[in-house]
Amino acid sequence: MHDALNGLMEYLVLGLTRGSMYALIALGYTLVYGVLQLINFAHSEVFMAGAFGSYLVVERFVSEGDKPPWYGVLGILILGLTSGALVGAIVAYLLERVAYRPLRKRGAPKLAFLISAIGASFFLSQLAGKLFNRLNNNTFPEYFDLNKAVFHIGPAKVSMIQAILIVSALIMMFFLDTIVSKTKLGRSIRGVAEDAPTAALMGIDIDKTISRTFIIGGALGGAAGFLFGTAFVFSNTMGFQPGVKAFAAAVLGGIGNIRGAMLGGMLLGVIEATVPTAPWHGDTTWIPGGNAWVDVVAFIILVLILIFRPTGILGERLGRAA
């Protein structure tokens, strides 16, 4: 029993790490859905662009094997996060201008947006392949010890990179939550989400608000791209898998609902890490084959939750984003 608990703790940490990535990406889906009722399938490529963009910046300052002091590492991390966020924001902004706004102006049907989103997704992924490479194993330079234990939760080690992932995700989510619930911009986003024509009558510039929503979602996705690339690998096709998962996480939490996306992302990450691997110690898992079933388990749970709560765990609270 003790072994199982210890094991569970280790998987929980792994799950929260994975989940914080899902949550950051899921926010991009949910924000856009909130204001446009549009599933922005190209968001996974915004995530990818953030990884490549931040790489180009980071590799100018450090190279493999460098050992900068802690403030150097911190500086590079902040630089990576901001450059990733910036690239993500730019790509998301352009995406909205090129792929969605023309359709919106012409009052195109919802299906046209979907096709446009998928087209933009392929375009961006292939463009990155053409501009950079099509390798599946690009890595950031290793400029600090990723595996260094920062602290322990019981027997489970939380490594440097896990702490960085989780803490930066939490900070960004806190900021987003504050922006949406406390600022004027947040109020206009909520206004557009609740009832766009009325919001326009109240003097809110809808186009600007939508643009800014894309920029915020893109910045979070781009920063997630940097974090993901630092922890794992990055490639021109890296967006697809996490993108699908993050979308599922957004639905799980209640699409359009910002706190729902955060909760859904974390929950999905934890489910993926803990359910197929139960009972968390020893040779055999309760589900024979264990990790091979990770996607099956994740989506079965998604379906089960949607059966009982069709609008997700926290529900679609369009307009009352926070």
Binding site: E272, W280, H281, N291, A292
Partner: peptide
């Protein structure tokens, strides 16, 4: 020899953490 089978699909696994943890958990 006692064999414990695991799998990690090459095209969909991005994060090998849980797989690695599962290897460690067997104590093999």
């Amino acid at each position: 020899v006692k064999v414990v089978s695991q799998s990690a699909a090459a095209d969909t696994t991005k994060d090998y953490g849980p797989v690695a943890q599962a290897v460690k958990a067997t104590g093999a």
